[in-house]
């Protein structure tokens, strides 16, 4: 009698130990890929770094060059995308949090926004292609920015909505009871209180679009030369990485790795920065 229960007990403990070690193994498995991918990018990227990277243009096959035009193109298109996407996103997030919090229309917009947030980015590229490139007849930096803005939009909508909902109701009531009109309450009280969160959302969006390739492939296309004219095709770092990495030339591979290194470092810095802002904000609230 006691032996069967002891056996049962032992079996359960063994099963438990196996399951828990498997869970530890799963965590190690996840970290293993992270370390491997980051290590490859850093090692190969740093060895491919050179001073000319930021001053020279993307080279034709076989010759030496840098990524200056691609870095510039990425910068310009990302900034324009933020300038288009962030204001609309903040306004839409304000509508969700302040005017449609429990209404069916608000729920519908939230639902659609969540779908947009995880929709395949290549689909957004196709959308902008049919909307802009097909109608204007040529690829352009504007089209690329617009495609990126569609990725910025849902990120900013979501963070703005969430952050405004966290602002205590007393603040609204206090301001409104002083006779302040609602638009002023929103702009001068609520935004001020939710600002760190909204900035975090914009930084996250920036991190996300700086590595996006698929929506740029057939909107901004690529450009071998320096251009600041956004109605022309424009180079961007991710598209150049794609083109160069798929090529058979070693010098192009090295440039692709250098670009990958720059993008990865930028993305990691952005996400660390946004995390730091959120933490500081949380600490000041507690």
């Amino acid at each position: 009698m006691s032996t069967t229960s002891e056996k049962l007990y032992r079996n359960r403990r063994i099963k438990n130990a196996i399951a828990l070690s498997l869970s530890g193994a799963a965590a190690l498995f996840g970290l293993f890929w992270l370390v491997w991918i980051l290590w490859t990018t850093l090692r190969t990227g740093i060895s491919a770094m050179k001073p000319g990277l930021f001053t020279q243009m993307t080279p034709p096959p076989g010759s030496d060059g840098g990524l200056a035009n691609a870095l510039f193109g990425s910068l310009v298109m990302s900034v324009v995308a933020i300038l288009i996407g962030a204001p609309i996103g903040i306004a839409a997030g304000t509508y969700l949090a302040e005017f449609a919090r429990k209404k069916p229309i608000g729920e519908a917009i939230r639902f659609v926004n969540d779908i947009l947030l995880s929709a395949p980015s290549i689909v957004l590229g196709l959308f902008v292609y049919t909307l802009v490139v097909h109608t204007t007849g040529h690829f352009s930096g504007w089209a690329g920015s617009l495609a990126l803005a569609l990725i910025v939009l849902p990120v900013v909508v979501r963070t703005t909505d969430e952050m405004l909902q966290l602002v205590p109701g007393q603040m609204r009531e206090a301001a409104l009871s002083l006779g302040v009109p609602q638009w002023k309450v929103t702009l001068q009280v609520l935004y001020r209180s939710a600002l760190p969160g909204i900035v975090t959302g914009i930084l996250l969006a920036l991190a996300r679009i700086s590595g996006e390739t698929a929506p740029l492939l057939f909107t901004a296309l690529n450009n071998q030369y320096w251009t600041a004219d956004m109605s022309q095709p424009m180079a961007s770092v991710p598209v150049v990485i794609f083109q160069y990495a798929m090529s058979p030339y070693d010098s192009w591979h090295a440039l692709a790795w250098a670009g990958a290194f720059v993008v990865t470092v930028f993305v990691l810095l952005m996400s660390l920065l946004s995390r730091a802002i959120l933490l500081r904000n949380k600490a000041s609230h507690d």
């Binding site: 839409a92 608000g106 049919t130 849902p154």
Partner: peptide, 29 residues
Amino acid sequence: DGLFRWIVASAGLFVLLALLGAALSMLWG
């Protein structure tokens, strides 16, 4: 206030239209 409400509401509708527009434009294409 009315103007402000109108602006943010149209931004909210824009999100709906973006998804709808993406679907329709690809169906059209």
